Simulated assay, not measured.
Amino acid sequence: MLIVAQGGGIDRQAAILAASLRRNAPGFRGRLIVAEPQPGGAWSGSDPRMSPRARAALEAFGAEIRPLVARDFGRSYPHGNKIEALALLDPGRPFLFLDSDTLILGKIGALPFDFTRPSASMRREGSWPQPPAYRQTYESIWRSLYDRFGLEMEGSLDLSQPDEHWERFLYFNAGWFFGADGPEFGRRFRDWAVAVRDDPGEALACQSLDPWLDQVVLPLVIHSFGGGRPASGLAGLDGDVTWHYRNLPLLYARGPRRAIDELEAIAALPEIAPLLSGWTAAERLIRAGQGRATIRPMFADYPPHAPERGIRKRLKQAELWLD
């Protein structure tokens, strides 16, 4: 299992993830590997390393920390950490990448992963692409990418969805993904992401690639390795086995009660509690109780699949969109 941890708050999220893994999947037989970006390279001019307290917490929960010297993304595109970090993994061994703002809620090692058929999170919205009127379509934009990398697109389509509906095309959230060989997967992911970033091509000329670059290239890489949409047996990811909470206001607004209970229990652990000091969202929503007392009731009647944009807007209006 691979995650990324660096200063600025991602390190404390990583420590919370590690604590949740040890609490809720005590029989997990894999390794939790933490990629820590280093000064220099693509992070030149800044020090992205994690705090000593977060490092100590991760080590206390059994994580193995490996230094990541970014070459291609770094400060210019921090989401690229997950792409470059795959090179730190051992060749020939299956991997699961998780965003650090994720909670482990159950026995993740018991899920029926088929690592020969890579997949990724389907908990996403139609965020990319945004076809310009009268110029490009979902079909033409995605096909330009498949053609560019020598891939057939037809086998990736969900034919139950109508033409020009975004869900017809293979599109993932990059909050989790897995495959059979981390370095091999990472090489292709990195090479293709750099190629698209440096030369988007005519079809992508009007499309934003920041922050979407990883989610643009991920389905191409997964399809190229014979993967696709996750099998039904993996429904516990983004469900009762893991929860990608993204940030604390969103967790209280739409996360399952189980995830909130677990986060609050972890926040009280002696290894974690010191990391929350100075974290405005944690101090107000967890310690002062505003998450349960204020945010939770605000969204009690919201539809379960309401667009995130509306949730964010309401939280901001209430001055509860906190980092």
Rank of each mutant, 00 (worst) to 15 (best):
L68D: 08
V69C: 10
V69S: 11
V69F: 13
A70R: 07
R71D: 13
R71T: 15
R71E: 15
D72I: 06
F73D: 09
G74M: 05
G74T: 04
G74K: 01
R75V: 12
R75P: 02
S76K: 15
P78Q: 08
H79Q: 13
H79V: 13
H79F: 15
G80E: 05
G80M: 05
G80A: 04
G80I: 00
K82G: 09
K82N: 10
L86M: 04
A87I: 04
L88K: 06
L88R: 02
L89Y: 11
L89A: 07
D90I: 11
D90T: 15
P91M: 10
P91E: 13
G92D: 09
P94C: 06
P94Y: 10
L96C: 08
F97R: 04
F97P: 03
D99E: 12
D99N: 12
S100H: 03
S100T: 12
T102L: 08
T102K: 03
L103N: 11
I104M: 06
L105T: 08
G106D: 12
G106C: 05
K107T: 15
I108R: 03
I108D: 00
A110N: 12
A110K: 09
L111S: 01
P112K: 08
F113M: 02
F113V: 01
F113S: 03
F113N: 00
D114W: 00
F115V: 00
T116H: 00
R117T: 00
R117E: 00
A120G: 06
A120N: 02
S121Y: 05
S121Q: 04
S121P: 06
M122I: 13
M122L: 15
R123N: 14
R123T: 11
R124G: 11
E125W: 05
E125C: 06
G126Q: 12
S127D: 15
W128E: 07
W128G: 01
P129F: 02
Q130T: 15
P131K: 06
P131H: 03
P131C: 12
P132E: 13
P132V: 09
P132T: 02
P132F: 07
A133P: 11
A133K: 14
A133S: 14
A133L: 09
Y134H: 15
Y134C: 11
Q136N: 10
T137M: 06
E139K: 08
E139C: 12
I141F: 01
I141M: 09
W142F: 14
W142G: 02
S144M: 04
S144A: 12
L145R: 05
Y146C: 08
Y146D: 05
D147N: 11
D147F: 01
G150W: 10
G150H: 11
G150L: 11
L151T: 11
L151Q: 12
E152W: 08
E152M: 10
M153V: 08
M153H: 08
M153P: 05
E154N: 07
E154S: 13
S156V: 04
S156C: 11
D158H: 05
D158Q: 11
L159E: 10
L159K: 10
S160F: 10
S160C: 08
S160T: 15
Q161P: 05
P162I: 08
P162W: 09
D163V: 15
D163T: 13
D163K: 14
H165R: 14
H165Q: 14
W166R: 02
E167K: 13
R168T: 09
R168Y: 07
R168G: 06
R168W: 06
F169S: 01
F169V: 10
L170S: 03
L170E: 03
Y171E: 05
